[in-house]
Nucleic acid binder design. Sequence first.
RNA 1: GCCGGUUUAGCUCAGCUGGUAGAGCAUCUGAUUUGUAAUCAGAGGGUCGUUGGUUCAAGUCCGACAACCGGCACCA
Length: 577
Amino acid sequence: MSYPIELIRHSLAHVMAAAVQKLYPDVKFAGGPAIENGFYYDFDTEHRFSEDDFAAIEKEMKALIKSDGRFDRREISLDEAKEIFKNQPYKMEWLNEYDANGEVLSIYTFRDFTDLCRGPHVASSKDLPKDGFKIKSVAGAYWKGDSKNKMLQRIYVDAFATGEELAEFLKMQEEAAARDNRKLGKDMDLFHFEPEYAPGCVFWHDKGFKVYRRLIDFIRARQNREGYLEISTPTVLERSLWERSGHWAKYAEHNYSGKTLDGKDFCVKPMSCPGGMLVYAQGIKSYKDLPLYLAEFGKVNRYEASGALAGLMRVREMTQDDAHIFCTEEQLQEEVVKALRLMIDVYHKLGFKKILMDLETRPDSEFRIGSDEVWDFAEDALRKSLESMGADYILAEGEGAFYGPKICLYLWDAIGRKWQCGTVQLDMNLPERFDLSYIGEDGEKHRPVMLHRAILGSIERFMGVLLESTAGVLPLWLSPEPVVVAPVSEKFKDYANEVVEKLQKAGVYTRADLRDEKVNYKIRELSLAKTPIIAVVGEKEMNDRTVTLRYLGKEGQQVKSLDSFVDEMTEAIKLPL
RNA sequence: GCCGGUUUAGCUCAGCUGGUAGAGCAUCUGAUUUGUAAUCAGAGGGUCGUUGGUUCAAGUCCGACAACCGGCACCA
């Protein structure tokens, strides 16, 4: 019979545990679930696993699968379980915290390996594919996901129902590596990093910075249409401000701070919000001023843990397309909907169809502020906003910020990792701390409700996701060099320059490739650098005043008159408002 | 920060069991004036991540540190 893939993966996890037990008898078992594309199992043993061990473990697994071992389920009492697992500290810890709660305890035995497990499993190892899995990596993982606990060794395995599916998956992973934002950044000459001088900080090259600016142009234009005002606040601010906002204490280890020679403490801004609060606080606000939208493309610096850095996806200096929306409680729900609609529209225009949205609720944290009633109100408002727009979202309980619940939008990178980009967050902290107010219809002072909102999130991360999702083939309006003119030989240099001039006059980023090389060579090079359009010009084109166009990734060529090509490009580089 | 791996020319990488570095591409020079994914020839280019140690001798062995990659933890 055929089993669901999750069941096969989970059963394979038991097989791997059995294999590891055979090879390293001192091993202690933590647990091993099925995951997307495979499974993992967490072990604790003196032996340090490395790639050199993979072959032996796989071989043992294959032998076990071939042995046609049964997966035997048995329901047992808690006392019996404690007897069976008395030498397995992680299982014991679990059992000691186990709250019966009506659930039956069960164990599964496969060959010499018995695991506490809810199941279900395949009936026998002959139901498992002996060539459908491959050990991928070994990595550290904290027991119970808590960094205060011991670090275990986790072995990740890619697993599928058949060898063909596995091979296909591995091939896709290999192709995904070619779309890595770091590789594209190099190939397309967009940016680089300086690990020695500024780990985690981007050095934008001309082309990369053109894309960066274009993204900001786009967001700015959309915001302008929605009634946003744009501000810019200082980068380095006095300690007292960060104490007031709460960031000095709570994020001490992530802040870049320092003293000047005259003894003043400063902090490089890790967020733009306090600056926004101060702008709001200027002058008296009336309910007629609300909702008030203050946007800021702020560069923020956070000293992220060294192990957290990852190309453009996780950096220490990033640009947020931040905005703060001040409104009344009554306006809140509508404002959340407006913000989400704006974000989703922007994502669609940028070509993203698959977006994950979640609602993150109150964290179980000592730092959490605000009464339960206020949290109830806030979570309710966000939930109602999502429901009123019929949005698909998942509930991420306990994932909210200490100051309020949030809705986050996630996009995926080339190898399937999910990254948070846009977000709408309700903040119950800052308006209070900065004593913000507006005068209501009743002539009394009221506290405004505040939303943090970022559409792309960080320009850096968004560029990373965008590059990987497009494999570097950016839409023409975002491309730093949508077209390059390649003359067939030096003789057509003047005409090439004329084409370039016309395009530039129309606002198109372009240049002529005048190198003393064959057309073949230029086309190869420009294609590898992901140039969307190559305009070849030679004798024919010069005489007819045309260009011969080659579009990236497409076979064949198109001949167009110079004028119509310029018109076409003028249209193509417009922001997709 | 933690676990594992990695770090050799501008880039991609080779260098077995220690005997003081190699390829392709790129760059420069010359020839070629090119019609849709690499024209030919020659030349220059590396304190082998940094730093200690072992050794007659270290890119190679051992230690520390840093960065990068994959996870874990974190992510205002």
